[in-house]
Amino acid sequence: MILIGNMEEFLRRAAKWLIEKKPIRDVRDWGIHFSLWPVHLTTACCGVEFAAVSDPKYDAERFGVLPFVGPRQTNFILIEGTLTRKMARAARLVYEQMPEPKFVIAMGACAIDGGIFWNSYNIVRAHEILPVEVFIPGCPPRPEAVIQAVMKLQKKIKRGDYYYGVERED
């Protein structure tokens, strides 16, 4: 292929091959696990505790977690409690817009299986619409639990145990 002069295509493939090699992949995973930017989408009342996570007492910024504007600049979505039908659509849209690799944490009993609202006619289970990496139990979970979940996710990323982007056919 290099002979027919498609330099650009060759370089792209070479880069893709190289990035999957051990040392570079480790550096990449190390980089990602310190830069988890949650998107600013408060889905329900657990948002009160998520706000407390970024307050001075719990200070999630220590772990590189700071809510950020716009799905295009973020790689991490934290489902804060119940997903109503309207909100589920928004959450899915936001998730689709985020660049790969992206991660989902479901916070609270409601995000696991409806919690206290299990028999409501207007809610959706988070795992039905999004691939959730970590679940946090509690109603609402304490901020420490949220931080622990983030650290679990970081460990998972550091192990390289996640889905990196869309797999190409070649």
């Binding site: 009342c45 119940t82 109503t84 309207k86 928004a90 609202f117 028999n119 409501s120 006619y121 207007n122």
Partner: peptide, 14 residues
């Protein structure tokens, strides 16, 4: 509105 409408009044009846 209605993004967080979790039907509290209906659930309360059950």
């Amino acid at each position: 509105v209605g993004y967080v409408h979790r039907t509290v009044e209906k659930i309360a009846e059950t």
